[in-house]
Simulated scan of single mutants.
Amino acid sequence: MALIFLLELALLAAAGFWGSTLDAGWPVRLLAGLGAPLALAVTWGVFCSPRAAVPLPGPVKLGVQAACFLTGGLLLALAGHPVPGAVLVLLWAVDKALLTHAGAPV
């Protein structure tokens, strides 16, 4: 469970990093660098957290989680770091598989 928390933090950092690397003026970089992690954090909090405001069935929740991490991986790739982006997604998938195998909730 600690690993998924660290991966969630890495996801938010990836989104913020992407925003800061945009080829635009500082207001756009600032907005994207703060807005992208905020959008992911709100999505995660509303749909994926243990105390989610909108409880989802297991497969749907897994799909939202996958979409969040795929987005983070894509944003890292767009920022010029495709290998760390792929590693982020791969680590999430392995952690999710291990947690599911251990009987932890999705």
Rank of each mutant, 00 (worst) to 15 (best):
V94Q: 02
A86M: 05
A32V: 03
L9S: 03
L88Y: 07
L74D: 06
P82F: 06
V64S: 09
L76F: 04
T21Y: 01
A66H: 06
L12D: 05
F17N: 00
W18G: 08
G85E: 06
L38K: 01
A93L: 10
M1D: 14
G45C: 05
G63F: 07
H101D: 15
G45E: 07
L38S: 01
A15V: 03
C68G: 01
F69I: 01
G45S: 11
V87F: 05
P105H: 03
L98I: 12
L98Q: 09
A67C: 00
L88N: 11
R51K: 09
A67L: 14
T100E: 14
F47I: 04
L90C: 13
M1N: 13
V106P: 01
E8T: 03
F69W: 14
G33L: 04
P105D: 06
L40W: 05
L90R: 07
T100C: 12
G80K: 05
L22Y: 04
V94G: 13
V64F: 08
L91M: 15
L12V: 07
G33F: 02
L78F: 09
I4K: 12
H101N: 13
T100S: 12
L56P: 02
Q65Y: 00
A24I: 07
F47R: 05
G35I: 12
L38I: 11
W18I: 02
S49A: 12
V60H: 14
G35M: 09
A13R: 00
V83T: 15
P57G: 10
G25T: 06
L78G: 04
L38E: 05
P50T: 02
W44C: 04
P84D: 07
G103N: 10
K61S: 12
L78I: 14
S20H: 08
V83L: 13
L99E: 10
A32R: 09
A66G: 03
L78S: 05
L31Q: 06
A97C: 04
G58F: 04
A93R: 08
V28A: 09
A24C: 07
L78V: 02
L7G: 07
L74S: 11
Q65W: 00
A102I: 13
V89Q: 01
L31T: 15
G73Q: 08
V42N: 10
P57F: 14
A2Q: 10
L99S: 09
L11V: 04
V60Q: 14
A97Q: 11
A104M: 12
S49F: 03
A104I: 08
V60E: 12
A53F: 09
V83S: 04
P55G: 02
A13I: 00
